[in-house]
Computed example of a mutant assay.
Amino acid sequence: MVRLIAALVGIVFCAALLWGAVLPRDATAPDQVKALHLHPREVDFTFNNPVVGTFDRQQLQRGMQVYKEVCSACHSLNRVAFRNLTDLGFNAAEVKALAKGYDVPSIDDKTGEVNTRKALPSDHFPPPFPNDTAARAANNNALPPDLSLITKAREDGSQYVHSLLAGYKDAPKGWTVPDGLYYNPYFRSLNIAMPPPLTEGQVTYADGTKASVEQMAEDVSAFLTWTAEPKLEARRRTGTGAVLFLIILTVLAYASYQRVWRDVKGKKTATPAV
């Protein structure tokens, strides 16, 4: 009796598997996020070439200006010190003047009270908010990320930052944007808490470059690439020199091999005397 019941259960199970295999499946609904999400646009940055690519100092200075006048209101740059800006082409006096435009936390030596002072070149860029709680409270509960390494933390790095900043659009028909969010097809979930940060002519460039949204997005993306990889040019020079050295060493080693073993090979191939 037990065997009969087990056999019936096995038959029913096999029949269910067979039915599930041959029964046509309902068409799955397409993933709307994947359908609307766009891959970052290609931008011809001067540092794109992995061998000889270098930073455009003028572009880096413009990008620093965009960060200072626009992005720094919400985003920190914790890993960059003011003295590092000399790599952008600023001299010591200019760096000192830039640092003085910021206040950093300090402690009064006489009273021990928490106070502020003007920043020094050795200081890092101060955060716009005292802590994460204050940052969320000021940004609809969204926490603005630190931008020091943002181009290393995001896939496609510089291209992604540029596309995101310049890619705000009206939501297509059928897509709902919740209150307090904005539609951006380059953001992973399409709805982003950051409002469009750039508008035409928002900054006035010292070199006279027209401050279009595309230009500002490209400039600040280049600047944030430098903050993430300040030694990029030195690393590439070192790598190129090392590769050239190895190529020359290989050629010399092969030539030495041929010279040293030439006579030995000749003796081995010579016809022995009878």
Rank of each mutant, 00 (worst) to 15 (best):
V2L: 13
V2K: 15
R3G: 14
L4H: 13
L4M: 14
L8F: 15
V9G: 05
V12E: 09
W19D: 09
W19A: 11
D26F: 14
D31S: 14
D31I: 03
V33G: 08
K34Q: 15
K34S: 15
A35Y: 13
L36S: 05
H39K: 12
F47Y: 13
N49M: 08
V52M: 11
G53Q: 04
D56V: 04
Q58A: 13
Q59P: 01
L60N: 00
Q61V: 01
R62K: 09
G63R: 01
Q65E: 11
V66F: 08
E69Q: 14
E69V: 03
V70F: 09
A73Y: 13
C74V: 03
S76P: 04
L77V: 01
N84A: 15
L85F: 12
T86H: 08
D87S: 12
F90P: 03
D103L: 12
V104Q: 03
V104L: 03
S106D: 10
I107D: 04
D108R: 07
K110E: 07
K110C: 02
T111E: 09
G112C: 06
N115I: 09
T116H: 11
A119L: 00
L120Y: 10
L120G: 02
P121F: 12
H124S: 13
F125Y: 13
D132P: 05
A134P: 02
R136K: 15
N139M: 03
N140L: 08
A142L: 06
L147K: 04
T151F: 11
T151K: 00
K152L: 13
K152M: 11
E155I: 06
Q159T: 03
Y160Q: 05
H162I: 02
H162A: 14
S163G: 07
A166I: 00
Y168L: 03
D170N: 14
D170A: 15
P172H: 10
P172K: 10
T176S: 14
V177F: 14
G180M: 06
L181M: 15
Y183E: 06
N184L: 06
P185S: 06
F187H: 10
L190A: 02
E200R: 05
E200Q: 11
A206G: 08
G208F: 09
S212Q: 04
V213D: 01
A217R: 00
E218I: 09
D219M: 06
L224C: 04
T225R: 07
A228C: 10
A228G: 08
K231V: 07
L232C: 04
R237M: 09
T238S: 12
T240E: 00
T240R: 12
G241C: 02
L244R: 01
L244S: 03
I248H: 07
T250S: 15
A253V: 06
A255W: 11
V260Y: 15
V260Q: 09
D263C: 07
D263M: 02
V264F: 15
A270P: 01
T271V: 08
V274G: 12
